Simulated assay, not measured.
Amino acid sequence: MPGLGCSHRYFLPLSRRLAPQARVVAVDLPGFGRTRGPRQPLDMRGLSEALADWLVATGHPGTPLVANSTGCQGVVDLAWHSPQLLGPVVLVGPTMDGRARSAGRQILRLIRDAGRERPALGLALARDYLELASPPRSCNGG
């Protein structure tokens, strides 16, 4: 489950690295990437329920899940309401640090961390954020 405003593209480099050892699926939840969403954006519970529905519909309960940033909150919420669907979980960069709850501190951390990201991930994020801000996307629940 990607972080705030991210699509499956953020996980493509990791997916390519894991593909020789396992089947990998990078999921776009409703309102992210090319997946249509409801008129109103889903909250964290709505996103975790969408992930639960996807796991059940595709026959993947118990599959390993990798989450990044705010996606970690969604997987933890999934663990709370549907623990029977969980397998191994990897939480990368979970949010929120109690010492940095202001928007200003979060922006500073984002800028600082951007230098540690692979350039391809920065391009994926930029594309996703541009789509997030576009009129069709903002009406799409993203």
Rank of each mutant, 00 (worst) to 15 (best):
S82D: 08
I111W: 13
V75I: 02
G74C: 10
P94W: 04
Q73L: 14
D77A: 11
R109F: 11
G71F: 00
R112T: 05
V90N: 00
L123H: 08
L123K: 08
A79P: 01
L130N: 07
P64H: 07
P88N: 14
L123W: 05
R116T: 15
L123P: 07
A103M: 13
H81N: 04
G87Y: 00
R99Y: 01
L91Y: 02
G93C: 07
V75M: 05
R105M: 12
L130W: 14
A126H: 10
M96P: 02
G98Q: 08
L121T: 08
A103Q: 10
L123R: 14
E131N: 15
Q106H: 09
L121I: 12
D97C: 05
P64W: 08
L85T: 08
R109V: 07
A67V: 04
L65W: 07
R127A: 14
G115L: 06
Q84W: 09
A120T: 13
S82L: 04
V75C: 03
D97W: 09
L85N: 03
S69D: 10
P88C: 14
S82I: 06
D97Q: 07
A67N: 02
A114Y: 11
D128S: 03
G98H: 07
G104S: 09
Q106F: 07
L130I: 08
A124I: 06
L108N: 10
D128Y: 00
D128E: 00
Q84G: 10
A114V: 10
I111N: 08
A79V: 02
G93L: 00
P83E: 08
L123G: 05
L78R: 02
V75E: 08
N68T: 11
R118E: 15
S102F: 04
C72T: 06
G74H: 06
L91V: 03
D128M: 02
R118S: 13
R127I: 10
S102T: 09
I107P: 11
V92G: 05
V90F: 03
R109D: 09
G74R: 08
V75R: 00
Q106L: 13
A79M: 03
L86C: 04
T70L: 10
A126P: 11
A124C: 05
L110Q: 14
L85E: 03
E117G: 12
T95R: 05
P64T: 09
Q73R: 14
I111V: 15
G122N: 04
R127C: 11
S82F: 00
